[in-house]
Simulated scan of single mutants.
Amino acid sequence: MLAFLFVDGLGLSADPRSPLRQLELPTLRALTGDFSPAARNAPGVAYRVLDANLGFEGLPQSATGQTTLLTGTNASALLGHHQGPHPGRRLQELLREQSLQVWAARQGLRLLHANGYRQEYLERLRASRRNLFSAFAFAAVAAGLELLPLGDPRTVPPAFWPDPERSGERFAAMAQGHDLVLLENWSLDYSAHREPERLSERFTELDRFVRGWLEAGPEATLLLTADHGNAEEPWHSSHTRNPVPLLVVGPKASTVPPMGSLVDVAPWVRGQF
């Protein structure tokens, strides 16, 4: 049982101005060794630092970063550049063939895309002539999964949790009933672009969500990682070339090998089943 918590826009920074240095964030600090710039292992915990630039100049983007995480193929190399925010035709083809969601469905695994969506947003997605799906949502649909509305008992709100610990506990309960469950949290990237003054709330919510997962004590393993940096430098609204964290907590943590980039995540996930 593996739960993939994707956090859009979470990079690593040693700058003393960074929220990673300014805020308490006790749960994430303890698990990552104070957001260490180097890999570390502890009982039931594996922490890695991943390059998100994928060998290309410019700022990493969501479509190529997320597609790389989900397929294990360097999506920026496929295109010759970074692409965001939504995957275009070539990345869509890659997601249909190689994404973790499609792979898991073919294996007959119990699979869940746990995001809840506002009804009006779902209607806009379906009505648009161009792709407005994120890579995670596109891969879910490609795997035959339904995008569920907020309030459905099979979902967790993806962001702005009024009770983060309770949401973390709920995510842990969902993981107990599935082989692979995925949740796409986009609030850090959203706030970094649009309302940086509220980033401290978003970081605190994430820390409390992970605490709720831990307090639930699930048998499942939690994987947390990101596609690119952004929120760790709130003094601007752009993505960054900073590395991103990969955190694995639970029984499968002892199997995490050395990793160098986003490309390494999907092969490890497949190897757990």
Rank of each mutant, 00 (worst) to 15 (best):
M1Q: 05
L5R: 05
R17E: 15
Q22W: 00
L23Q: 07
L25H: 02
L25V: 08
T27F: 02
L28C: 08
R29V: 04
A39T: 11
R40L: 15
G44N: 09
A46V: 06
A46H: 03
Y47C: 08
N53I: 06
F56I: 11
S62P: 08
A63C: 07
T64C: 10
T67E: 01
G72N: 12
N74H: 10
G84P: 05
E93W: 01
L95T: 05
Q98I: 01
A105M: 07
Q107G: 06
R110L: 07
L112D: 04
A114M: 07
Y117H: 15
L125E: 11
N131V: 07
L132M: 12
A137Y: 00
A140T: 09
V141R: 13
L145K: 02
L150A: 11
G151T: 13
T155G: 07
P158V: 03
P164K: 04
E165T: 11
E165V: 06
S167R: 06
G168L: 08
E169A: 14
A175M: 02
L182W: 00
N185Q: 08
L188A: 03
S191I: 00
S191V: 09
A192W: 01
H193R: 11
E195F: 13
E197K: 13
F203H: 08
V210I: 13
V210S: 08
P218D: 06
E219M: 03
A226M: 07
T240I: 08
N242E: 09
V244H: 11
V248F: 04
K252W: 00
P257Q: 08
P257K: 08
P258G: 12
L262W: 03
D264N: 08
D264L: 03
V265D: 00
P267A: 11
W268R: 02
Q272C: 10
